[in-house]
């Protein structure tokens, strides 16, 4: 492993930072950058890791989330990587972190000024599954020609009665660029709107970064007569009782028994610390 702080050499970090500055200046616009091979596979968060490595400093406190938890295998692996290469403090608590690298979730705990969210992005192009050609996509973005996205939503409604995108739900950033929020559940989309934190998105394999600066408008695409619904969970967490969090469904028995509990383990534990009780015994 290289001896650089946070693995990347300063030249490579500078290239990423330059791209990030441009990304912050044009919210939602995908900026190409010359990504490097990292010592973990593409698809494991190499884009997010390069972004984090480029913005992290020795005094930062890092939180890494995968599927809402810091204890999933890949989150652990990324924490280890930064502990080893940058020696920074690692935390599980969203409120204590200065940088939060995430895959698939935005913390339930509201983000505050000065915090940086770093998203791992597999496919940065919101138009990709409607138009696979990069050149075409670039042109559509340049002309803010997002008709095909709306046609897709319309077709969903005619076929299924509602919009059939439950994650990676496209959003309009700053009223100009359609953006993939990464595969977070659409439940999390509203958290990006006028958020106090800086949101940075890194796609390593596709070599793109983009950003949502603090207090920027991020509106999920919808129609006047079919407004965006964040798909709230009708249940309460069976551990902490929250009715406002995204829930995981956990199969607990051979006959399909299941319970619902917060996907954000830090949030769930925090609530239980506060009330001093757990509604149901942990396995």
């Amino acid at each position: 492993m290289s001896g650089n702080f946070a693995y990347l050499d300063e030249d490579s970090k500078r290239l990423v930072r330059r791209a990030l500055l441009k990304a912050v200046s044009v919210p939602g616009y995908q900026v190409p950058f010359s990504g490097k091979e990292m010592p973990m596979p593409y698809g494991w968060g190499t884009g997010g890791i390069q972004v984090t490595a480029s913005v992290i400093g020795p005094s930062d406190t890092l939180k890494v989330i995968d599927q809402g938890s810091g204890d999933t295998t890949n989150a652990v692996s990324i924490q280890k990587f930064f502990k080893k290469t940058a020696g920074v403090r690692i935390t599980d608590r969203a409120s204590e972190a200065t940088i939060i690298q995430t895959r698939h979730r935005v913390p339930e705990t509201p983000l505050s000024e000065g915090q940086i969210m770093v998203y791992q992005v597999p496919i940065p192009e919101p138009l990709r599954f409607l138009e696979p050609r990069e050149g075409e996509c670039l042109q559509l973005h340049a002309n803010a020609e997002y008709g095909i996205l709306y046609v897709k939503l319309y077709e969903d409604i005619t076929r299924h009665g509602e919009i059939a995108s439950s994650y990676d739900y496209p959003a309009m950033v700053n009223g100009r660029h359609a953006m993939s929020p990464s595969p977070i559940p659409r439940f999390d989309n509203p958290k990006l709107h006028r958020s106090k934190a800086l949101h940075l998105f890194g796609a390593g394999r596709e070599k793109r970064v983009y950003a949502v600066p603090p207090h920027t408008s991020v509106l999920s695409l919808d129609f006047d007569d079919h407004p965006f619904k964040a798909a709230p969970n009708p249940r309460a967490c069976e551990l902490c009782g929250s009715t406002e969090s995204f829930l995981d469904e956990v199969v607990t028995g051979d006959r399909g028994e299941r319970i619902f509990a917060c996907s954000d383990t830090d949030y769930c534990e925090g609530r239980r610390r506060l009330t001093g009780k757990t509604l149901r015994k942990e396995a």
Binding site: P41, Y42, G43, D66, H104, S166, Y167, P183, P185
Partner: peptide, 16 residues
Amino acid sequence: GFVGHLKLPHYVDFQS
């Protein structure tokens, strides 16, 4: 990498 990443947990998107 990208084909293999499907082995990583996708609990959240699948739940959605």
